[in-house]
Amino acid sequence: MLTLLGVAVIVLGFALRFNPLLVVVAAALTAGLAAGLSPVEVIEAFGKAFNTNRYVTIAWLVLPAVGVLERCGLQERARLTIQALKGASAGRILLAYLLLRQLTAALGLTSVAGQAQTVRPLIAPMAEAAAETAGPVTDADRERIRAMSAATDNVGLFFGEDIFMAIGSILLIVGFLDQSGITVEPLHLSVWAIPTAIAAFIVHGARLLLFDRRLAPTTEARP
């Protein structure tokens, strides 16, 4: 029961807005100590897991390329391109991106797009520019558009990648069920990820179209 204190530390730490890296370390120490591990054992377990999960941080390798392009005006160019399009809106651009992200992730191409690769240099500026064609955008709405762009990438990836059967999550499910004496085919898991993917597309797609309507009155109300 005491190990649940680790979960409590995470919830409270994030809620009270302590630095998340400190919160994570504190939660690991709390859970480990409560489970009867020694401090050194907890630090070792954490260090080991940190080391084996380094691949998670690899996506930042694209920053130098993105940085040079930003220096040369890529975000501005993305804006100009969208401004030339008729009928573009923030929600519609993000809807198209959601579809593309789900489809590529379903083919196993999870690293083709992402927050660093596509959202910051291209998608967020495009969505902002599209909203600007309808009228001036407040700073608060600008932040909302950026947040929605980032969220759209997450939803597309999360609900697309399980359709690809060689992805880590599918292998985890197969491996775990196998340990429990249940044999499942990766292909069957992938097939049953499709209804969820469609539901996610409908739900988030509706959010995006509603997002356009929410943006509209505040932008039009301004002189």
Partner: peptide, 26 residues
């Protein structure tokens, strides 16, 4: 900034939680 490492840190936390038996308790 430091947020770049948060996903990797959370993945590591998951492993520690598993070792501590948080999952079984829940």
């Amino acid at each position: 900034g430091w947020a770049a490492l948060l996903p990797q840190m959370l993945a590591a936390l998951g492993a520690v939680f598993a070792a501590a038996g948080v999952g079984k308790t829940i």
